[in-house]
Amino acid sequence: MLKRLLAVLLVLGAYGCADPKEHSHAVYMLIDTSGTYAQESAKAQRIVNYLLGTLQPGDSLAVARVKSRSFSEKDIIAKATFESRPSQANAQKRAFRDAIDNSLRLVMPSRYTDITGAMIQGAEYLNEAGAGRKTIIVFSDMQEELDKVTVRDFPISLRDIHIVAVNVVKLSTDNVDPRRYLGRLDDWKKRVEAAGAREWRVINDLERLDSILTRS
């Protein structure tokens, strides 16, 4: 009986000593600033606000721009790992919101869209954060455009990361031939699944933001 009790205590202790990051959530949000999509920044801010309201103390959030070449830490607009004390976490969230407000107000449209490079950067950040659940939110039309020098046609690793594409607007060419839009989404799905992503989802209705962070 005593041995059993000891075993239960040991198991509880082992659980108690487990890395608290395993239960945390890290989110990396990419905001497309190329061409006309830069006008959608108000929506992006809405999503960031939603994330700030939803993420818990101990969770991490980073927001980065998608530019012509986005595999760089310099593109991260704001990042924070929220304190475990709720009052401090709330203060961090307020500061984070202010930083995003200021940055998005001054955003300049880029010529090209390097989604792949931004995703690799995001995966790096998330893996370093070591959170139990990792999510990349891509706020973009998912139309990747690279200059001639930039190389992105190689296999990438997005192991155990949830990818959520938000507000994937239809381009004028998509309206002419919807197969282009569907094919684009299908290509991305195949690509992220091949990269080892745990999930691929598309959310276009911003009234359903609550499904961004729900566990599948």
């Binding site: 509880l12 475990s84 709720p86 009052s87």
Partner: peptide, 20 residues
Amino acid sequence: ALPMSEMVGAGDYITASLRT
């Protein structure tokens, strides 16, 4: 339960759904 998270932290878990 909620104010205790201010004392012992809200991000620590003992099991998947049981916070410290």
